[in-house]
């Protein structure tokens, strides 16, 4: 039995136990019932359905956002990035720690239908869950590679890259729908008053949407790559968010979803915060 199949069996055993002794009313996990082997989310409430749960290299979706608004205790099969998302939802008071049971999976990285590693998984920095109720180990999961940041570019190159990515975008908002962090009841892009969303999907609208969303996700992105996986136009949706999240980490020493105690960087302050980019202050590096 492969290591992944052993992990999957442990998930099923665990789910059976959690449901049998009523520790959890629902187990959210993956079922191999999608197209091209892509796993789909499945909500198991009955012990007899536990067999539907699987775990493989195509367990791609981030399930964390399904926890918001649920009643009763829910167990979730969480990849490390999903576990970080769950932690961040707890820290942001969207869900209660006591209402969730985290089944933390050691993750070998997910692949696309052709078997190539997903973009987000190639640069993964956290491949074991930072917070969990039970951990399902995988001895084959290797230590992460050192963090790779995009090289600093000149302003012209930045603009060229931004324009290139934005030209592909059709403003379908799939990235927002897929994102665990986009849980606003009404997104600013859906509001009519004020009318943030211009009528035509032109460069201005795309700039407003992508920069606005990047601001909302600064210091909140868990790098699960759900946005770029959801994108039908092949936009590198995450690159702006990756930059600001790296910047927040560098400036305020905050890394998203690694601890239940840390205050999110944008929800707190220090009186002596650096004034980078202010008039007469230090310049951006």
């Amino acid at each position: 039995m492969s290591v992944l199949e052993t992990q999957a069996q442990k998930v099923r055993d665990s789910a059976k136990k959690l449901l049998a002794d009523a520790t959890a009313q629902t187990v959210i996990g993956y079922a191999d019932e999608g197209v091209d082997g892509l796993c789909v989310p499945v909500f198991i409430t009955d012990v007899k359905d536990v067999g539907r749960l699987v775990w493989n290299r195509r367990s791609v979706p981030n399930l964390a956002s399904y926890l918001i608004g649920r009643k009763g205790k829910t167990a979730i099969v969480a990849k490390p990035c999903d576990a970080r998302a769950v932690v961040n939802l707890i820290v942001e008071n969207q869900i209660k720690r006591d209402d969730v049971h985290i089944i933390g999976m050691d993750c070998p990285g997910m692949t696309d239908a052709a078997g190539a590693a997903l973009h987000a998984c190639e640069t993964c920095q956290v491949n074991t869950s930072p917070v969990f109720d039970e951990r399902i180990e995988n001895a084959e999961v290797k230590p992460v590679s050192p963090e790779k940041r995009d090289a600093e570019r000149g302003l012209d190159e930045n603009l060229a890259r931004f324009t290139k990515e934005m030209e592909k975008c059709i403003l379908c908002f799939s990235c927002r729908q897929a994102c665990y962090g986009c849980y606003c009841q009404t997104c600013f892009m859906d509001r009519g008053v004020p009318d943030w969303h211009p009528e035509s999907p032109d460069m201005g609208a795309k700039m407003l949407y992508h920069l606005g969303r990047a601001m909302h996700l600064a210091g909140r992105c868990v790098e699960c790559g759900a946005c770029e996986n959801a994108c039908a136009s092949g936009v590198d949706v995450r690159y702006l968010i990756r930059e600001v999240t790296g910047f927040v980490k560098e400036l305020y020493g905050y890394d998203t979803g690694l601890s239940l105690e840390d205050q999110p960087a944008m929800l707190t302050y220090q009186p002596d915060d650096r004034e980078v980019g202010f008039l007469g202050g230090e310049a951006h590096g």
Partner: peptide, 28 residues
Amino acid sequence: NYYARRRFTVLKKLLTVAGVNPDRVHFT
């Protein structure tokens, strides 16, 4: 203004990454 300071710091970085000239936006 402490909260605003963090937001503006991050926003200006973001604008630079998106190719907006940082000299168009000023905080003081």
